[in-house]
């Protein structure tokens, strides 16, 4: 664990909060020093300090095996933390599951259904498990939830005949049986085709627009970039960084890209102007232009031209979340050992 990078907090003006562990009303989820060590000694989550502001679509990002699901299980009161505190909707977990979870919809580690029951009966079963849900409105709410995820036509089919995508949708429907303050979705687009992924993302945006905070875990960086306002990155059980998606992406260093057939000459000029980490291929040179500001960029371009480099293209490419992740962790986005 000593090699893991230190937790770094990135706070924007929108979610500026104090360092006190007490729950502010505007934080839907707040953890402090949250740790889970399983019997057998494996440290799955290590001192997690996470803050999810109300109204955000919060991306919880990390490779498989980085501790995302264990964190979600602790937040949902399924497993008890070894140390630290988890607060959801202002109340400590797992002590307050009875009062907190009726206001939370969750999809944890894929859907799980009763194969011998129809989709509709599966939803009725999960709805009956919630003691605060009204049996008189159950049938109506089940129908609405099925409609919302596009399963109306398959509602009376046995769940064992469902495809993985349909099961995933039914899982989402059970999270949407009630109006929720918080929706926790663990890899909701797993197993879906591209069209299904788009539909689920549209649904997430729609739910968020209604005022529900969405906590979305994923190992797909572009998914987080597409739907999330905030994100946190986990690696090997530790929080690497959290903040707004825009901030995180802006932390990724932009690269200066020069398109030219004269790669060698261009590389010479760029090196003289202290552009580092140069990579050259047939018709393109790029590098990190840390020392450059807006003033010096045109001068660098002029220098290239006066050195006889035929400049076909010249510009800065903005960083992506993936670049940010690689820059922050110094590693690829692979399954953690």
């Amino acid at each position: 664990m000593t090699t893991a990078p230190d937790t770094e907090q990135v706070r924007g003006r929108a979610d500026a909060v104090g360092p006190t562990p007490a729950a502010a009303p505007d934080d839907v989820i707040r953890t402090s020093g949250l740790t889970k060590r399983f019997r057998g000694g494996q440290l799955a989550v290590d001192g997690l300090d996470l803050t999810v502001p109300r109204g955000s679509v919060f991306g919880f990002l990390g490779p498989n095996g980085s501790g995302k699901t264990t964190t979600i299980r602790m937040l949902m009161g399924l497993i008890a933390p070894s140390a630290g505190v988890a607060t959801v909707l202002g109340a400590p977990m797992p002590q307050s599951v009875g009062s907190v979870l009726p206001r939370v919809g969750a999809l944890i580690e894929g859907p799980a259904l009763y194969g011998f029951l129809s989709g509709r009966d599966n939803l009725a079963r999960f709805d009956a498990a919630d003691p605060t849900s009204d049996p008189r409105t159950r049938a109506h709410r089940v129908t609405e939830a099925l409609d919302r995820v596009g399963l109306t036509a398959a509602a009376s089919k046995k769940a064992r005949a469902y495809s993985l995508g349909m099961k995933q949708r039914l899982g989402l429907a059970s999270a949407l049986l009630q109006p929720r303050e918080l929706l926790v979705l663990d890899e909701p687009t797993n197993g879906l085709d591209p069209q299904g992924m788009r539909e689920i993302r549209a649904l997430i945006r729609e739910v968020a627009a209604d005022g529900t905070t969405v906590f979305l875990s994923s190992h797909l960086l572009d998914e987080i970039e597409q739907v999330c306002t905030h994100a946190a990155v986990m690696s090997k059980g530790r929080l690497v960084v959290q903040g707004t998606v825009a901030e995180l992406a802006s932390r990724a260093q932009g690269r200066l890209v020069v398109r030219t057939p004269d790669v060698v000459a261009a590389t010479d000029v760029l090196t003289k102007h202290r552009v580092t980490d140069l990579r050259a291929d047939e018709a393109r040179v790029d590098g990190i232009a840390t020392a450059l500001d807006e003033e010096s960029l045109p001068r660098l371009c002029a220098a290239l031209v006066s050195a006889g480099v035929r400049v076909h293209g010249f510009g800065l490419e903005r960083g992506t979340l993936e670049d940010a992740f690689v820059a922050l962790t110094g590693e690829g986005f692979d399954v953690a050992g």
Partner: peptide
């Protein structure tokens, strides 16, 4: 897990 987060 879904029964328990319902919460049953």
């Amino acid at each position: 897990r879904y029964l328990l987060v319902a919460p049953a």
